[in-house]
């Protein structure tokens, strides 16, 4: 199966004579062994032959004979227009009112003014720690300390990045899609980063007693580890196993539920109707 996918991926190289040596040998061997792939290749080859037979316009010999003269005339015309256009050295400057301050003082004065306005806004308008961070839903727990919000933001970012990777893999259909469409090197490197981040995040979530999110990050860590360890972008069977694993565990659903619950508050998280009805997350 995976050799069929690798074969299809290499069809353009083979079609355009860009394949040689061992790769060509393997390609040809597979073509003789697999009738479906051989048919696919023959169809692509036929399409190329037909594309080669399409008519190409030729404006005629008179057009080509006069081409150089027309080009020369155009170059000359453009040069003439450039020469005639007003010289860039003397743009008419609008008269300015006489400056109150010398010009050298203007930049430092403007910078100082911006600084003063910034200090004023920072001190009186955006006073640090004076505003609670609102949590969507829930009146009793509608405020959380900023230090805890950091953990929430980290968890939320982690879920969001994991979700993007999983969505790309779950929505990828190798039967109909371009094998290059799935950016596996990119997915692998992002997964590695997330796996490296998981341990610290789980431990912080454990301290904040958000067991549900801690478990979800743990589940995600296992799937992301599988993605990070994919050996090559041709390893589409392994991709299918990961897809099946993510789908069977409803990981994306669990991420959506966690996102609906909002950032972790450090205490026991309020149950949404959806999470309550599902009664928890299946472990891996």
């Amino acid at each position: 199966m995976s050799s069929c996918r690798a074969f299809r991926k290499r069809i353009p190289e083979a079609l355009f004579g860009e394949m040689a040596g061992r790769r060509r040998e393997m390609f040809e061997r597979h073509r003789t062994e697999c009738s479906a792939c051989a048919a696919e290749y023959a169809e692509a080859l036929r399409a190329l032959h037909l594309a080669g037979r399409r008519s190409r316009p030729d404006p005629g010999q008179a057009f080509w004979d006069g081409y150089w003269d027309r080009l020369q005339a155009r170059i000359a015309e453009e040069e003439r227009l450039e020469a005639e256009s007003p010289a860039p050295a003397a743009p008419a400057k609008p008269s300015r009112p006489k400056a109150v301050f010398p010009r050298w003082l203007a930049v430092p004065a403007a910078a100082s003014a911006i600084l003063v306005v910034g200090i004023f806004l920072g001190r009186y308008v955006f006073k640090p720690g004076s505003r609670p961070v609102p949590v969507p839903g829930g009146a009793a727990s509608s405020v959380i300390p900023a230090s805890e919000m950091d953990l929430g933001a980290r968890a939320s970012r982690y879920l969001d990045r994991s979700k993007r990777i999983l969505l790309a893999i779950v929505n990828y259909h190798p039967e109909t899609q371009d094998p290059y469409g799935l950016d596996l090197p990119g997915q692998r490197s992002a997964s590695r980063e997330l796996v490296a981040e998981a341990a610290a995040l789980k431990s912080d979530l454990g301290r904040a007693k958000d067991r549900r999110l801690e478990r979800l990050v743990g589940d995600l860590e296992k799937i992301l580890l599988q993605i990070a360890n994919l050996e090559s972008e041709d390893d589409l069977d392994a991709v299918n196993i990961i897809k099946a694993g993510a789908e069977s565990r409803d990981i994306l659903f669990e991420i959506n539920i966690a996102e609906l619950r909002g950032p972790t508050s450090g205490g026991p998280s309020p149950k949404t109707p959806a999470s309550a009805s599902r009664g928890g997350i299946s472990s891996m």
Binding site: K9, I11, P12, L15, D178, P179, Y180
Partner: peptide, 10 residues
């Protein structure tokens, strides 16, 4: 480039 060719031929 291979990807572009693959898609256009398809």
């Amino acid at each position: 480039v291979k990807s572009y060719l693959f898609r256009s031929v398809r």
